[in-house]
Design a protein around this nucleic acid. Structure first.
Length: 673
DNA sequence: TAAGTCACG
DNA sequence: ACGTACGTGACTTAT
């Protein structure tokens, strides 16, 4: 059977080994991540980007005693090639308290991955590999895949037979691809690490080194690199066996260290329980996928393309020469050297910036920047969305299946990739049209349910601020209420501009604002911004107190936590480096709010899916966008979703303020909003 | 592979 | 004095 081209092959052309390794490391894809040298695997792969200095680990500040156990005893790894061997393992699997499982496949894209082999480990140092589809040059005769999977299936689907894996959502997909719905997945070492040490790497390689002092065969060792790289199915069975057994073995070993640490902390265990349940809910969402209307996007691409060409022509005319409008470097030369426009600001590396803010400013006095602005925004729409989304549809389902990364965002949020469905345009009318292509099949509609002002409600809860609590209890427009306090007006006399200011202030509070940041966002001077902040904190003294206490707690403990006890370590909170310390302080302010919101919607996803299952509904959850859940709803279930989903979402926690979720329906995502 | 830019909550 | 809103992912250009 010919191998399907992977999504990444289509997107990236021929991915080289470096691409793959970077991808695996970044997204924690299981089984294939390998360190690039002894001791080097725990370094932040993103180097120390200035954008997120708050989370660069500093081991000297956060040195914790790590239980490092080196396995010195014999390893017993077995390759299963006969029925006698296989039959001998089944009772051992049945009897084991918890079995580590690992799958080997042909692709890192879970929905498209073909199963090549399975390994398991029932106790550290002991593992077996069941090769299923090796077709390399000297591959031995393997047990027949269909028959052997049929015999394994009852155990895999038995919810009482507990399993542990590294990134189990991936393995769930792989097994689902061969018609097996795994039950009894109780543990995931990647999620254990995410809960215990969110700021550190979570690949199995990193965990094995960090927690049990073990290293193993690298993916490069096995498959080579670059153009010579081979598929896992081509790998020599004995080598593949050792590699895979090592993974299962290490996974069980790491589980033995991390799980007791989670059990020892009731709050972390509660967070871990949420993560395990969320992993399964995400598997369902990913598997459901979303239906994309290709012709609609193609028409949009066509229209965008024409306008982009027109803008290019106009730009060349004004500049007096053709140039690449997409090149910030060439644009800088045209702007600042040839046309003599003023330099507004520099980039992080000292180059003359041509970002949106600069172009907006320059557009007041010159004709070219407006063309560039429009060109940028339309190119973004075309290049990232209208040209790409339909290409991402799965060949068999015809739908787009994103991947939700559950162990990437340090605040506890999810992220979405390949494609990212969490940044589909919404803020401009032209951009919103992309959402018209997110459609429901015949007989269904799209529903969108989102939390209202979730982070401000959490701020009210955390700060216990009387005025903010009152505003939410009375169901007021919180931005208007904020404006009334800050501007000394009554809510009905608040102007739209005052409300806009208050809204920006509220956003600023959630982000740990400085006067400088607020001034920039509002386009006012620093002193004025400072005055607004002072006025705000006079009126909302509880918020002021909360902000101060959060900073103090962060400095004293080295971490902050969400309402539910999810922790974020802040290694730089006491750094002598002022800007880095300030960055950590802003993260300390933001993380409890963003993180609690993440906890709440995870609870919602799990609760909504449970209700759908228990009540036998056909409604599918198809996307999560931080404070929003999107559904594909049969017309007969619209009323159920209208009443039950917001009720469930509002009921997942009892905070000091009511939670509010609102739902809308439409033939597509745009109209459901 | 990095930098710049911009899409989202 | 210092750089400044928090958290992400994808695309393009240029090295």
């Amino acid at each position: 059977m010919p191998e399907l081209p992977s999504l990444e092959t289509i997107r990236l052309g021929q991915p080289n080994d470096a691409d793959l390794l970077a991808f695996y490391e970044k997204y924690g894809f299981k089984g294939l991540v390998r360190s690039r040298g002894a001791g080097g695997s725990d370094a932040n792969t993103g180097s120390d980007k200035a954008a997120k200095p708050a989370f660069v680990p500093q081991d000297d500040l956060f040195a914790e005693p790590e239980p490092v156990v080196t396995v010195t005893g014999d390893k017993h790894y077995e390759t299963i090639l006969t029925w006698d061997q296989f039959d001998a393992w089944l009772p051992k699997l049945e009897a084991a308290e918890c079995v580590a499982i690992d799958t080997e496949t042909t692709s890192l894209d879970a929905m498209r991955a073909d199963l090549v082999g399975i390994s398991w480990s029932v106790k550290p140092g002991e593992a077996a590999y069941l090769p299923l589809r090796h077709d390399g040059p000297d591959a031995p005769v393997l047990l027949p895949m269909d028959e052997v999977l049929a015999k394994l299936k009852p155990w895999l689907e038995n919810p009482l037979k507990l399993k542990v894996g590294q990134h189990i959502k991936y393995d769930r997909h792989v097994f689902a691809n061969v018609g097996i719905e795994v039950k009894g997945y109780a543990h995931d070492t990647m999620l254990q690490s995410y809960v215990l040490e969110v700021h550190k790497p979570h690949s199995l390689t990193s965990l094995a080194l960090r927690h049990v002092g073990r290293t193993g065969i690298t993916y490069e060792d096995l498959c080579g690199k670059g153009a010579h790289q081979i598929s896992f199915a081509q790998v020599d069975v004995e080598k593949a066996s050792e590699y895979s057994c090592e993974d299962s073995d290490q996974c069980l070993d790491v589980h033995g260290v991390l799980w007791p640490r989670i059990q020892a902390d009731a709050k972390l265990q509660a967070i871990y329980d949420i993560e395990i349940a969320t992993s399964e809910a995400l598997f369902r969402i990913e598997r459901n996928g979303v239906l994309i209307d290709g012709p609609t996007l193609a028409a949009q691409s066509q229209a965008l393309g024409q306008r982009i060409l027109q803008l290019e022509t106009e730009a060349y005319e004004i500049a007096g020469q053709p140039f690449n409008l997409s090149s910030p470097k060439q644009l800088g030369e045209i702007f600042f050297d040839k046309l003599g426009l003023p330099v507004i600001k520099k980039t992080a590396t000292g180059a003359r910036s041509t970002d949106e803010e600069v172009l907006e400013k320059l557009a007041e006095d010159y004709p070219l920047p407006a063309r560039i602005l429009e060109h940028r925004s339309l190119s973004k729409l075309k290049g990232t969305y209208t040209d790409k989304l339909a290409l991402m549809a799965h060949p068999r389902t015809g739908r787009v299946h994103t991947h939700y990364a559950q162990a990437v965002a340090v605040t506890g949020r999810l992220s979405s990739n390949d494609p990212n469905l969490q940044n589909i345009p919404v803020r401009t009318p032209e951009g919103r049209k992309v959402r018209e292509a997110f459609v429901a099949p015949a007989g269904c509609v799209i529903a969108s349910a989102d939390y209202s002002q979730i982070e401000l409600r959490i701020m009210a809860h955390l700060s216990d601020d009387a005025a903010l609590l009152k505003a939410f209890h009375e169901g007021l427009d919180v931005h208007k209420a904020t404006a009334a306090e800050v501007f000394g007006a009554t809510p009905d006399t608040v102007s739209s501009e005052q409300r806009r200011y208050a809204k920006t202030i509220n956003f600023g509070l959630i982000y740990g604002m400085s006067a400088f940041g607020l001034a920039k966002a509002l386009g006012i001077d620093n002193t004025a911004a400072k005055n607004y902040i002072t006025r705000y904190f006079e009126r909302f003294a509880g918020v002021k107190r909360y902000m101060d206490e959060t900073r103090e707690q962060a400095k004293a403990k080295g971490y902050v936590e969400t309402v539910f006890g999810r922790r974020l370590m802040l290694p730089e909170i006491n750094s002598p480096n002022g800007p880095r310390r300030a960055g950590a302080e802003r993260a300390a302010i933001n993380a409890p709010m963003q993180g609690t919101a993440a906890d709440l919607i995870k609870l919602s996803m799990v609760a909504v899916q449970k209700a759908l299952d228990e009540q036998g509904k056909a409604t599918k959850v198809i996307m999560q966008v931080h404070d929003e859940l999107v559904f594909e709803v049969p017309e007969s279930e619209v009323e159920w979703v209208r009443t039950e989903v917001p009720r469930i979402m509002a009921g997942v926690a009892n905070l000091k303020v009511p939670l509010l979720a609102e739902v809308g329906f439409g033939p597509n995502w745009e109209q459901a909003h």
